[in-house]
Structure formats: structure tokens, C-alpha cells
Design a protein around this nucleic acid. Structure first.
Lengths: 341, 341
DNA sequence: CTGTTAGCGCGTTCAT
DNA sequence: ATGAACGCGCTAACAG
């Protein structure tokens, strides 16, 4: 059944020419008789010939396929990102293979291995929140498979990364809050191994020092990104005295959990307590009580940029690449204010 | 660089055995010397040998890859669905190639063609809202590539489909509203070519007739799924006299737009006017004024089921399949009530 | 301008 | 128990 697909061999047979003539004709090779070229192309069309990509992949040692590994497609941030990735990939005639780590390191490793064996030409990754070792990625170097990380990137400088800088966005956010009169500002970070957590804390201290405000590190806490973890974080923050009047939250989803908790505690949002979060997802537009402001992180743009960088790396692959130089692209976060109340 | 990957040939050379011996040893072929088998496997491990999948794909005429084409990963419904698809595919050692049609038919065709040429083993599709012809899918039959549609499925019976039945959910929804005293119930459908639109209207009439209520078809309108289209639909509905007191909306996103519009018109949600929608997305849990109820459509389950069906079809591929029998799997929608006010 | 040949890596007869 | 040889479909180096 399947094997009756037309091949160049078949075309060659029917036209009494050689296989390579057909191949050339189909590729508009310069030195080829106009007449035979026409005949070949004509018959190919008639037979609905399509080159067998698997054979080409095999021969060219190139699959025109990239892999994308990310924690969870269910999160809007990541689906927006892959949206951007797919766009750029398609433009460049690449296909996209996806895998979700579900924040499980073993699964992440498994996916990367499978993709490597499938001979992907390049890989884009947003790390699982539990990933602390990177050998499954460095291993790809041996196979000449370039890797670009985005958003959740490794701390080590020895990787290509595209991410949104927490510093500028966080600075904007905190200064915004200070300017509105807040003096006790809490922070809910993600797990410690996430780069963003450290950056956020760092900037928090810097800005407070610059503004000559007292730093109380009990106001800096973290969540494991579960709803329960966030509730515990909120409970911790609200038990401090004096209570914080504003809280910076790692992302919109977590902020929604935090806001929900605050409401349950009979706090008035934007009055008793303000929230500023990260990501600025579309859903926030539909909310009655969204965070007061959100640091936009441009997931689509991050994904697209990561894909562009990867395309570039894959193109340079043939040439000698400069040893040990890694791209580190920062997309500045930008504070979007939803409510000035 | 890339070509220094170890092959069975290389292993054979180093061990002074034949290529086929290595191949057999690696596959635990019965008639093979235990001693040589060990030596081969040992060296393979040492060399970190991995079979070249592209070669295997090529030779086996099978890629263990399925394609997924859907309108937009940015929509939660679809990202949940692909979540389910990826899960099942992974369990069955399949990889997943994705493509977004962005509701553009030309793009949909392009993606399908590319995937076909890449020799995917099977395809899962949720149609673009503008798709009216299916020849790009029927063409796949010639290549023995089974196709399963989900959610947005063709009307013709000549396809395998998994979808959520509008009938039962719609019936539940309307009866729920009638029981709460509503007599003027509006409907906002999607574009006419969507199966769900017709089903919804059909059920609407049936239930109203069964309950001996007057049918006013001016209360049944549609949106092109843009925010503006939805506003026009709302404007139309609210200009009817008497005004509807409840509105059934094609999905949660559209419902949010509709609710927003109603609020702007100073209508009190759940008092002046009630909304019931479809999909029951997680975001609704965070809303102050969610639809009063939502017909859950189990996107994860739909995706997973579609993938299971596809796996089955691909497995039967070798055997003779019964001619012209198509699977039509219905996952009953289920009304989830958010608020009884 | 066109044909011949080799080979990519693997699985699979068919011999031995 | 093992090896030799073939072919999947295609490209490309070499020969005319």
C-alpha cells in the first residue's frame, strides 16, 4: 500500500532517463536540457510526486526539525512562547517537536534524549523548576545540536539564553510602589533555584537601599508554585507586623491565588493591600481585581527570539564557530499599570 | 564533526565481526552467541552508541511521529487538549509535531502538506473555523495516514472524530435555565460552518418545544469570535423586546467578552442577565463574575481520546481495515454550575 | 548535457 | 552461530 508512492526512480524508468537526471531536473539544476527538464517536471506533477523527506533527512544528516521542551503547555506564558517559536520555525521551513517536562526532571531528561536520537537540528528549552543539573543538555554539544534556553534559563554562563530581565522590571515595579507611598513591600518568589528569584531579591535590596528604606528580609518569601504553597507564603507575609501593604508576586497565576487568599482574609485589594506581578497575561484583563500592575515579559517575543537565535546557530553550524562564546539576550521586562487607584 | 557518531558498522569493525551480527546482538536476537552478544553490547555502551533513528525511520517507512494541527495554542482549550495528546503519544513512544492554523485555511493546508511530506504516521486535527473543504485531509488516505479530528470536526460522517456533544450539555444548560424561571433565552453561536453551532441551535429548538415555550429565532445569533463580533451579537440580543434574561454563549472566552459588554450596559450579572457558556476553563475560577454555569468539554480527555484512537488506527494499519467504517466518539458535555444565585 | 556509481545506517534475507 | 549482500530514496562525485 504505502510503497506505491512515486519515486524519482519510477519517474526515471517511465522517461527512460537516469535517476540523477530526474533529481537534477527537479532541482532546477543549471546544466540540464530544457526539454528533459520539462518532461520530468510534467510527469512528476502528474504522478503527484513528493520527495521522501525521511530519505532526505537521512542522507543530509539534517531533519529541519527543532525540539521544544517546556514545563507545561497549559500555562499561557508557555503556549504564547511556543506560538512565537512555531511562527519563526515555520518561516524558516522548520518543523517543531514538542515535549512537556511537567516540571519533572526525569521526564525532561527523557524527552531530551528521545529528541536527540530523533536527530533534531536544534533545541529550545525552558527548564523544569526542579532542574539543577545540566549534563543532559551539555551532552548535546557532542552531537552538534545547539541549545537555546528561554525564560527559565540556567545560571551558568555557558549556555545560550533569552530571558526577561527581572532587574529592570522589578526596579520599575518597586519604585512605582514606593512612589505610591508603600514602605512595607513583600515579595513572593518561586523556588530558590530559579534565576528569577535571586534576581528579584537582589533588585529588591538594591532599590530599597537606594531609596534609603529599611530592609526586612522576613518580607521576602517563596512558594513552590502550588496553591497551597502560595497560601502559606501569604499567611507568612500577613503575619508580619507591620503587615506589608504591597506584595510583589512571581507571576500572574500565583498572584491570583495570592489575591484570592487576601480576599478570604477580608482584605480590600488595592486598598489594604496591593499586588504587582509578572507576565501580564491576557486573562488579567477579564478580572475584577487584577494585580495593580504587572511586569510584561513578552512570552511571544521571547519564544520568537529564542527561535531566531537557534536558526542562526544552526546556520553557523557548518562554519567554524567561535569557541566558547554564548549569547545572552535580555528582553527588558516592562511595567504595565492596570489600575492607578 | 557530526559524522563521528558511532554506528553498528564501527562497532563491527572494532570487534571484527559482521555488521549483521552487531545488529542482531543489539536486538537480543535468539540465535546469537552469548559471548559475542555481551561483547557487542558492552562496546556499544562504551561508545555511547545510539541507533540513528532517521535511518530507521527511512528504512521502516515509519516515523513514530504524529502531527497535531489546531487553530491556536494560545487558547487554553487547545493547550489542554495537546497536553492530553502528548501524554498518550509519549506513553506509546510517539513524538508530536505541532502546527497552528491560526484559523487560516491556507495555512492549515500548508501545514498538513508539510507534515505529510515529513511522513508522519498519523494526524490529529481540530479544524480552523473557516475550513469548509476537506480535500487536504482526504488526500492523506492515499498515503495511509489516518486522521482523527477532535472538537472542531467536519460535518461529513466520513471521518474519525472525537468531540463533545453539544446536545446533552446544551439540553442540560437550557433546562437548568428554564427551571430557574428564564423564559427568554438568547444564544450566541460561532460561525455557521461550525458543527457545534448547528447542534446548539437544534437542541435549543427541541428543548423549547418540549417545554412548550415560544421560540423566537431573533434570539439566536452568532459571532465571528472576535471581540467586536461578540459586541455586535450582544447589542443585537439586548435590543430585542422583551430582552433575553439569559444567554447561552459558545465558549468561555466569548462569554467573558459578552459579560464585559453587559456590564458596560449597566446590567447586573446573574440578576438582570445570566450567562451559561461552554468549556469551563480554569480561568473562570478566578473571576468575580464568571458565567453562572459552564458546559465542561473535557479538552484534556478529548485530546487523549483522539490520540488513543489514532494509536489504534495506526496499529490496525498493517491489517486489512474494515472498509468505510469511521469512529465517532462522543464525550458528553456536562453542566458545571458555578453559582446558584 | 546526461549517465554511472557510490554510499548514508540499518534491518533482513539468504547462504554457510 | 555468523557473514555477505541487498535495498530503502536520494544526492553528489566522477565520467563521459
Amino acid at each position: 500500500m504505502k510503497d506505491k508512492l512515486p519515486t524519482i526512480k519510477e519517474i526515471a524508468r517511465q522517461l527512460n532517463v537516469s535517476i540523477s537526471t530526474v533529481s537534477r531536473a527537479l532541482h532546477d539544476h543549471p546544466g540540464i536540457g530544457l526539454r528533459t527538464k520539462m518532461r520530468v517536471q510534467q510527469l512528476a506533477r502528474q504522478l503527484e510526486y513528493e520527495p521522501n523527506q525521511t530519505a532526505i533527512f537521512f542522507k543530509q544528516r539534517k531533519t529541519f526539525t527543532i525540539g521544544v521542551v517546556l514545563p507545561n503547555l497549559g500555562e499561557e506564558f508557555f503556549s504564547q512562547a511556543i506560538n512565537g517559536i512555531e511562527e519563526i520555525a515555520t518561516q524558516n521551513k522548520y518543523s517543531v517537536l514538542i515535549g512537556q517536562s511537567k516540571d519533572d526532571v526525569a521526564r525532561e531528561r527523557q524527552i531530551v534524549t528521545t529528541m536527540k536520537n530523533n536527530r533534531i537540528d536544534g533545541l529550545i528549552v525552558s527548564l523544569s523548576k526542579n532542574t539543577t543539573t545540566y549534563d543532559h543538555f551539555t551532552a548535546l554539544k557532542k552531537f552538534n545540536i545547539p541549545v537555546v534556553f528561554f525564560d527559565r534559563v540556567p545560571t551558568s554562563p555557558d549556555f545560550n539564553k533569552v530571558y526577561s530581565n527581572m532587574n529592570s522590571g522589578t526596579r520599575e515595579a518597586i519604585e512605582f510602589l514606593i512612589d505610591k507611598g508603600h514602605r512595607r513591600i513583600g515579595v513572593i518568589n518561586g523556588p530558590d533555584q530559579m534565576r528569577s528569584s535571586r534576581e528579584r531579591t537582589e533588585t529588591y535590596k538594591q532599590v530599597l537601599i537606594a531609596r534609603r528604606l529599611k530592609i526586612d528580609l522576613r518580607l521576602v518569601t517563596s512558594t513552590d508554585l502550588t496553591k497551597e504553597g502560595t497560601q502559606r507564603a501569604m499567611q507568612h507575609l500577613l503575619s508580619q507586623r507591620p503587615k506589608p501593604t504591597a506584595i510583589l508576586v512571581i507571576n500572574d497565576y500565583i498572584a491570583l491565588d495570592a489575591i484570592q487568599y487576601a480576599k478570604q482574609q477580608k482584605l480590600k485589594i488595592n486598598k489594604d493591600i496591593c499586588f504587582v506581578s509578572y507576565a501580564n497575561l491576557p486573562i488579567t484583563h477579564y478580572l475584577e481585581t487584577p494585580p495593580m500592575a504587572s511586569v510584561e515579559q513578552f512570552p511571544y517575543k521571547q519564544g520568537a527570539k529564542a527561535a531566531e537565535v537557534l536558526m542562526q546557530l544552526m546556520a553557523n553550524d557548518n562554519k567554524k564557530e567561535e569557541p566558547g562564546s554564548f549569547l545572552n539576550i535580555v528582553i527588558n521586562g516592562q511595567l504595565i499599570v492596570h489600575s492607578r487607584r
